[in-house]
């Protein structure tokens, strides 16, 4: 649906987004994941047409080059600002008309989406009286009003309290059925919860992408966590020398061993512990999570 090719964005010769390429498939919910300052907002702004790429191309499937992409896109900025003197409903009708809806149609859809995002009760209140969560939901409603093929949400839940977050995530879960969603977040669990695909961004580049399952599978490494009665440091060099251990490091209370072959290494480890009578207090087999992948990429 969307093809991004070699897009770079520089501010004063400083590349904020550096040569990224990816494709978005229709009907998917894609999370753009990355730490603060990774270039997520800049990427979304370029896709929505608010910024022009320094180089590279963004193409919308089935559209002529140079045509107005904005007809097919709904966008929610990170901190949406509205005309505070308007009511929620007035604002939706206004932006609906700006997206070429007739007044009647815009009014009808405004009511529908106010209901859909759960702020119908507040439709005749001035927006300046809205809470943060209500504004975020009004923001989602305005992104949807012209039934775009795709909506882009910039950090839709980051600024919300736990209840608001849960509500917006549930709403996104529902919206997945009717439109393509691209949203940015720096919180992995949000991405894991609603998205089908992940784009992992770091320092302006897309460092990893794929479906959630693919990524889980690809980066699944086995780990063994060990802990000893006395100081772990003493045992670290000895553990390191055992066969089949890729790396070993100290993590708080544990020695974490990343290994290749679980069966073989577990055997070797347990034998060693038994024969040398190491004061083992903990032995745990675990699998690396996406969070480890995230951390690995970000700390690189």
């Amino acid at each position: 649906m969307f093809t991004v090719q070699h897009v770079t964005k520089k501010f004063n010769d400083n590349p904020v987004v550096n040569d990224i390429s990816f494709r978005l498939e229709s009907g998917r919910c894609v999370a753009l994941l990355g730490a603060n300052g990774a270039g997520k907002t800049t990427t979304l702004r370029m896709l929505s047409g608010l910024l022009k790429p320094t180089s590279g191309s963004i193409a919308f499937e089935g559209m002529k080059l140079g045509a107005d992409m904005r007809n097919h896109i709904g966008y929610l900025p990170q901190h949406p600002v509205f005309h505070g003197w308007m009511t929620g409903k007035e604002f939706l009708i206004y932006v609906g008309q700006l997206a070429h809806l007739t007044k009647v149609k815009a009014t009808e859809l405004a009511d529908y989406y106010l209901e859909r995002v759960g702020i119908l009760d507040a439709k005749d209140q001035r927006i300046s009286k809205y809470s943060g969560g209500m504004k975020q939901r009004l923001g989602i409603a305005q992104a949807l009003i012209h039934s775009p093929n795709m909506i882009m949400l910039d950090e839709p839940v980051s600024s919300l309290d736990p209840i608001g977050r849960r509500e917006v995530l549930t709403l996104m879960e529902e919206l997945k059925e009717q439109t393509t969603i691209l949203f940015s977040t720096h919180i992995l669990s949000d991405a894991e919860e609603v998205s089908d695909d992940l784009l992992l961004m770091h320092k302006g580049e897309i460092v990893e992408s794929g479906t959630l399952n693919e990524l889980r599978h690809k980066h699944q490494t086995s780990k063994i966590n060990l802990s000893f009665h006395e100081s772990n440091e003493n045992y670290l060099p000895m553990v390191e020398q055992l066969p089949g251990i890729k790396t070993c490091y100290l993590d708080r209370e544990d020695i974490v061993c990343v290994i290749e072959d679980m069966e073989q290494t577990r055997q070797a480890l347990l034998e060693k512990i038994a024969t040398d009578q190491w004061p083992l207090t903990r032995f745990e087999v675990s699998r690396a999570s996406l969070e480890d992948l995230f951390m690995k990429v970000v700390n690189k």
Binding site: Y75, P80, H83, V95, H100, Q142, H146
Partner: peptide, 13 residues
Amino acid sequence: KSGVVELILVKPV
């Protein structure tokens, strides 16, 4: 400055 323009100009105006 306030940022309202972001919401207006992402519509096909």
